[in-house]
């Protein structure tokens, strides 16, 4: 009888020891360095791309600061087709050789939708032109998460001359 009780004791002791070891391993695992979620930057990249590709120049209300900026470009003749999407318009500036305007336009229509902790760039035609919209809280080289969203765009001059297709890529990092 005495021997049998000792058996229970040792069995219980073994369970307790294993539990302590498992808890220790879990605790050590939870203390590893923080890794930001990949889902949020990915959704941000896709959303920014969808915003640029889904909204047309004519859709931007000219009551906002961005709207007034875009209206100014229409008024001074830099934008000739207000039916272009924002992404097509950036591509058209690039194709016309007006890279500074492509840069300025992209930053103006995108900056407000990017949270400051995220870095965001638009790469036009591969990486032939890189527009930095937001530098983010960490440099891209030091980031732990880097995701992208790609889209092909094309446009036309005078309805008869097609430019593109160009690869446009939004890169987001954190």
């Amino acid at each position: 009888m005495r021997t049998s009780r000792r058996g229970y004791f040792f069995l219980f002791d073994a369970f307790l020891a294993l539990g302590a070891i498992a808890f220790g391993i879990m605790l050590i695992a939870s203390f590893r360095s923080y890794a930001p979620s990949q889902v949020q930057p990915l959704m941000l990249a896709e959303d920014v791309m969808a915003t640029l590709a889904g909204n047309r120049v004519e859709d931007i209300a000219n009551t906002t600061q961005t709207g007034l900026y875009v209206s100014g470009l229409v008024a001074n003749g830099n934008i000739t087709d207000a039916h272009n999407t924002l992404l097509e318009q950036a591509g058209e500036f690039y194709v016309r050789g007006n890279r500074a305007l492509a840069d300025d336009f992209t930053v103006n229509v995108t900056r407000q939708v990017v949270p400051p902790q995220y870095g965001l760039e638009l790469h036009i035609n591969g990486s032939d032109q890189v527009v930095v919209v937001s530098p983010g809280s960490v440099a891209m080289a030091d980031s732990t998460v880097l995701v992208n969203a790609k889209r092909l765009v094309s446009g036309a001059v005078n309805a008869s001359t097609m430019w593109g297709p160009l690869l446009m890529e939004v890169r987001v990092w954190a």
């Binding site: 969808a50 590709a53 790609k150 092909l152 765009v153 036309a156 001359t161 097609m162």
Partner: peptide, 19 residues
């Protein structure tokens, strides 16, 4: 999906129109 959307919604119409 984004490629399919831009192909059928934007790129192909542009191609047919300019061509």
């Amino acid at each position: 999906n984004s490629y399919v959307q831009s192909l059928s919604g934007s790129l192909l119409p542009r191609i047919v129109q300019t061509s």
